[in-house]
């Protein structure tokens, strides 16, 4: 499998003038054609930030402080995204065309003052030579593809006229308009109810297979990720604490945090046993604990070394990495 995107030792920080607040700490992962990487973590774990970095879309103040992201186009040499000028022509040629993104809040992420059709046409015309009419026809075709009942009518409508699920479908149609090779989904179903969530996830998986896209699926819901991902990365406070094939990570979680997350799910818990819950809350980025950042909440706390020494990454099985002292 050829890797589309390779992230190596990526670190992201927020420039606060006096200091740079680290938000993502030297994470590495890769996504291949047709493959799905699930990134799991609580709010503030840096999962969205890492994904946005691939599009060069860090929020103001955010900057890459180390490592590199490279993208392998269909033809030619790999592009080092982290070296491209911010919002420059080179990165814009990738955005929407080669790498597309679906956001969490479809209502807020669609323009309130443009029709759905108009927004898809804008993306199409930015990256292709289609004229207005052909682009609109293609937009309607896309809306049909994402399962809209009357695509021609939807194309004329505005975001506020659609239901939550339809908005996210419209968002997906927009993201897929230029047949991207990598699709980044940032909690695409968090704002949706359970039934709609299942429909949207099914749709995404079907489209991924049809279009042979690589996909990065970000979620705080490890259960959902387990259903769709080939590989999983679990993040905590900006660090990748476990990374491996989904089957391995979910069946034999190697990090206490992953175990705790899975233990809180009915589907993964021992029948008859009480569901576990993780004590405490994610600490503030500015108050990052010494040693292993997870030690104040860790149910498998293993003595002073957790408090004082930063654990290194250990290979626990084939292609399965975990950052914890218990594997020394």
């Amino acid at each position: 499998m050829k890797d589309l995107v390779t992230v190596e030792d990526l670190s992201i920080g927020f420039d606060l003038r006096e200091l740079v607040l680290p938000a993502v700490d030297s994470i590495s992962f890769s996504v291949g054609t047709g493959e799905t990487l699930g990134i799991v973590g609580e709010s503030g774990s840096g999962k969205s930030l890492s994904a946005r970095a691939i599009l060069g879309l860090l929020p103001s103040g955010g900057k890459t402080t180390g490592g590199r992201i490279s993208y392998q186009p269909e033809e030619g040499d790999a592009i080092t995204i982290t070296d491209l000028p911010k919002n420059g022509r080179a990165i814009r040629k990738l955005r929407g065309a080669e790498i597309a993104m679906i956001f969490q809040e479809p209502m807020a992420s669609l323009s309130p003052v443009h029709t759905i059709g108009n927004q898809i046409v804008t993306t199409l015309r930015q990256h292709t030579d289609l004229n207005k009419r052909a682009a609109l026809a293609r937009a309607i075709e896309l809306l049909d593809q994402v399962g809209m009942a009357s695509p021609a009518i939807i194309a004329e409508q505005y975001a506020h006229q659609l239901s939550g699920g339809m908005r996210q479908r419209a968002m997906i149609a927009m993201a897929l308009s230029c047949s991207p090779r990598l699709l980044i989904c940032d909690e695409p179903t968090t704002a949706l109810d359970a039934t709609t969530e299942a429909q949207v996830v099914d749709l995404l998986m079907k489209l991924q297979q049809d279009m042979k896209m690589g996909m990065i699926f970000i979620s705080h819901n490890i259960g959902l990720v387990s259903e769709i991902a080939d590989r999983v990365m679990v993040m905590y406070l900006g660090q990748s604490i476990e990374y491996g094939l989904a089957g391995h990570v979910l069946r034999k979680p190697a990090h206490p945090y992953t175990r705790a997350l899975l233990g809180a799910l009915p589907a993964f818990a021992e029948p008859g046993s009480e569901l576990a819950s993780l004590q405490g809350a994610v600490p503030d980025l500015a108050a990052r604990p010494q040693g292993c950042t997870f030690h104040p909440r860790c149910p498998e706390y293993a003595g002073d070394q957790c408090k004082t020494r930063i654990p290194s990454v250990h290979v626990v099985a084939n292609q399965h990495l975990a950052r914890c002292h218990i594997h020394e």
Partner: peptide
């Protein structure tokens, strides 16, 4: 600050 602006950037439109 609104998400739709970021979404527009993610479409690849010039700033």
């Amino acid at each position: 600050q609104k998400p739709y602006v970021e979404a527009a950037r993610a479409q690849g439109l010039p700033e």
